[in-house]
């Protein structure tokens, strides 16, 4: 048994998320990773924008900042630059980070500032009523795509890799132990690190796409997730309809706040 209660604001429970929503599973994986790494609750800041995923800070007993739509990364950048010693975690969603906050997302990755971003990808705008998000799959139904979505989706991890992030991983809420490991690695990484978490939304996405039961969405995850190692050995035909999870990129490159500190040292007038 893991004691989550020391990390949560119990007065806010039961939480607002719908029955079967994956967001609670991600939060628990994050709490276990934080505990394993011994991150101090007083020296950790969680920043979020707007959306279902962005309700997360309300439930964790650390320093939290619930900001404006899409701007979580901008606020987090400010927090990190003001006090680089803090662990800054950004919790955001597919709509928040890649539509409204798309520019903040690519530029935070390009800048390679030491933030850990947990991006809950549920393929939809859940809170506002099931509108298409930038990751809604082609052909899927949404309240703004009554006859099926015509647009191709963003590959969020691919976007972060292309934009210059130093650590990019993808996890899912069915394989929870793996998710916990990936979050732990992201928290330890010095640089912009993203964990894209595929998390089901039975209410806004599932009900419109013949997966109204939360169990059905979890089964679909179980059947479509492939590890990066196995992915490499698969043919294009076998990869159809599947996606890979694991570490997609992990490189070393200059980190923004470290470079900034060096610049301050360099500019300091000599005694």
């Amino acid at each position: 048994m893991f004691d989550y209660l020391q990390y949560v604001r119990q007065e806010n429970f039961p939480h607002i998320w719908c029955s079967g929503c994956g967001d609670g599973i991600v939060l628990k994986a994050l709490i276990r990773s934080m505990d394993k790494l011994g991150l101090s609750q007083d020296e950790t800041v969680m920043v979020s924008g707007i959306g279902c995923s962005s309700r997360t800070p309300g439930y964790v007993d650390i320093n939290t900042l619930h900001t404006t739509h899409g701007r979580a990364l901008a606020f987090a950048t400010g927090v990190k630059i003001a006090n680089p010693d803090l662990n800054v975690i950004v919790v955001t969603g597919d709509g928040d980070a890649t539509a409204i906050g798309g520019n903040h997302f690519i530029h935070a990755a390009r800048r390679n500032i030491d933030l850990t971003v947990l991006l809950y990808n549920n393929y939809i705008y859940g809170m506002t009523g099931g509108q298409c998000s930038p990751t809604t799959p082609r052909g899927a139904y949404a309240s703004t795509a009554q006859h099926g979505n015509l647009e191709p989706p963003f590959n969020i991890s691919g976007l972060a890799i292309a934009a210059g992030a130093s650590f990019v991983a993808r996890g899912d809420v069915y394989n929870v132990k793996k998710l916990e490991t990936l979050i732990g690695k992201a928290l330890q990484k010095k640089g912009f690190s993203l964990v894209e978490v595929v998390s089901p939304c039975p209410t806004a996405f599932g009900r419109r796409n013949r997966m109204a039961r939360p169990v059905k969405m979890m089964e679909q995850l179980r059947d479509t997730v492939v590890s990066v190692e196995k992915w490499e050995k698969m043919t294009d035909e076998e990869r159809k309809g599947k996606f890979r999870t694991g570490i997609l990129k992990d490189i070393e490159k200059p980190e923004f706040t470290a470079e900034y500190a060096k610049l301050i040292e360099k500019m300091r007038p000599e005694e």
Partner: peptide, 12 residues
């Protein structure tokens, strides 16, 4: 316990 989204189940 690991997969409960609601923090509602514990195993000892």
């Amino acid at each position: 316990e690991l997969r409960c989204p609601d923090f509602a189940i514990t195993v000892e």
